[in-house]
Nucleic acid binder design. Structure first.
Lengths: 356, 356
DNA sequence: TTGTAGGCGTTATCAG
DNA sequence: CTGATAACGCCTACAA
């Protein structure tokens, strides 16, 4: 014979704390059936006010807490959202989580995180282990060909892609306006009178980096500035690559009068290199970045950059996900782009330009 | 009549992707019973090798994924660990999570995070909503009287307190050696010849701040330096409070020759204030901090500080939790303190001292 | 070595 | 408005 339920207490007395209180205990204590108790506790179905009171009393007295496993087995809902992240830098990471957790919490949802997923295969695997644990998943992937990524992803639950710049049918997508941000920054430099603007690229295949490069090119073109491809320097988002790029820049002639790095870290590396060489920033060469990482405002000169509201992106992801979860069938594909904000500090040479 | 199971396919054919594959489908497809399938998939009980192969094949073919809700309802294990955090600064946050997630993942566990819990009441509430979702919880609380916190915490599952400096019976505790770190740093300053060392405190009631203050005092006392309580300045871990503290310091006479801030942010604020006043750091006043936040190495002069390996703390927390989960009854209380590391850069004046 | 079937705690259907 | 009970998917004690 199989396992037998073993309940040493059957009356309306307080159960031993070592054993979990179930809905049946509440039923017994209140004198109603489990069905009625369930209805009261979930606010489903019609119940007499008097009954509601009695059941609530019993539940409170016994300190009843529904077993979530049983509940989700029955409803096939977990009230949990998953978050898949690459192994990225701290600040970015915590901001997304913050935004996601905050919003999820306010909707009665929990957040299951899983990091260190860089390849489509790893993401697919992580997604598999999340099956049944979550009602929806937000995925953040650094790979630029997200189409392939999503192609063989199990799609049993709602998915939202964050900053993947993928255009896959049926999957919600939230992107950062890298192109627009880079465009605005480039335009800003042009406005300040800079003409030979170099650009330090992101890693090969990185979607963010490529979109930023695109914005930079577009701005130059729209301004009628003949663009010199030799001004596009290689980089990999690491500080050191910005340093090297700046060193290289110094050997060019005519020397560029501005350097736009695809992210802040590289911009900081570039500034170090320029200072070492005795080149003044921003007087001789303006330097700007992208991301607005915390350090940006502390370095000298304070870095002009492009800010992205990461927490807001996370919050929006949760809302999209919850909508998809709640309206499985009539959920229409979401595809949004988040605006960026130009942060003008000192390194772009805005003060010098005004003085001219 | 209640809900009826609706399975349109009964043979060994591939099921429609819209419907979840259950262990029964695998049983049917492989020609064995669900019990045998379960045994194979869990490696429990004796099974003929041939059978193992056949069952595995069927499971793979059907892309079977166990329903975790059903599994945990049956085993009362979720294979998930919870993490409760206060609303703290990004870097710290992400490091803990990183350490926890990495270790949990390598043990087949998932991580459920929940942030923004500052009061004991909020923590208790968050813990309640996690009941049944997790097998254990790591709690990080900023309140210094953690005893009270834990007192009325439901203890149905294993708990580990991170950096709470609480000494509560039955609860595992992992602490950072704030006292030792501050002691070492103070000693370091004394060794470099500094004698009037001021200290900027943390927020009132913050355990970290108080322990650091304690280490500072102990080092002075052990060195036989008469301690002047007016050298202990108020602070709240924010950069601005470090700025104000340094301004105040400038008005003292004789002026201190060193400033030890209870965290890096305040140290950075202090450096700004000193530079504004034309005071040289570290020649006139050495400035040091605690935490080793990323910015620390970038400011000028590079900040000497005390480093804490947060990720390691998180990793250890997971191990302790898993042990408690696996050995419910014979788990002996864990109480550990994590060593800190002195990071000597330029702001403590080590170079000047050598030259003397 | 394998199969049978009850139980895990909830929800929801249907009858009263 | 309330009660009885099948089903959710899996594990496991026991029988074979």
């Amino acid at each position: 014979m199989p396992r037998v339920r073993n309940h040493p207490f059957a009356g309306p007395l307080t159960p031993p704390s070592s054993m979990a209180v179930t809905i049946r205990d509440v039923a017994r204590a209140s004198g109603f059936s489990v069905a009625t108790v369930s209805r009261v506790l979930n606010g489903s179905g019609p119940v007499k006010p008097e009954t509601v009171r009695k059941v609530r009393d019993a539940a409170t007295r016994l300190r009843f807490t529904p077993n979530v496993a049983a509940r989700s087995l029955s409803t096939s809902r977990t009230h949990t959202l998953g978050v898949l992240l690459p192994d990225l830098h701290g600040e970015f990471f915590s901001e997304v989580i913050r935004g996601i957790d905050q919003t999820a919490q306010s909707h009665g949802y929990h957040v299951l995180v899983s990091s260190s997923h860089n390849s489509p295969a790893e993401i697919a695997a992580a997604l598999a282990t999340m099956r049944g644990r979550v009602d929806g998943v937000a995925i953040m992937s650094p790979v630029s060909n997200a189409e392939a990524l999503v192609a063989d992803l199990p799609r049993s639950i709602p998915l939202v892609l964050l900053n993947c710049s993928a255009d896959v049918a049926g999957v919600d997508t939230l992107d950062i306006d890298n192109h627009g941000g880079a465009y605005a920054m480039t335009r800003h430099l042009l406005t300040l009178g800079r003409r030979r603007i170099a650009f330090v690229r992101g890693p090969k295949g990185n979607a963010d980096g490529e979109a930023r490069l695109g914005g930079y090119r577009a701005a130059l073109e729209d301004a009628g500035v003949v663009h010199d491809r030799t001004l596009e320097l290689d980089g990999d988002f690491q500080e050191l690559s910005g340093y090297h790029a700046a060193k290289h820049l110094l050997s060019m002639s005519p020397r560029p009068d501005a350097l736009f790095a695809a992210n802040d870290s590289m911009a900081i590396g570039a500034i170090s290199a320029l200072r070492e060489a005795g080149v003044r920033v921003p007087e001789d060469v303006a330097v700007v970045g992208f991301d607005d990482i915390p350090i940006a405002r502390y370095i000298l000169p304070a870095l002009s950059t492009v800010r992205v509201d990461i927490a807001k992106l996370g919050a929006r992801a949760v809302k999209v996900l919850l909508h998809a979860v709640g309206h499985r069938n009539e959920h229409t594909r979401v595809r949004e782009t988040f605006a960026t904000e130009l942060v003008v500090r000192a390194s772009c040479g805005v003060e010098q330009a005004v003085g001219r």
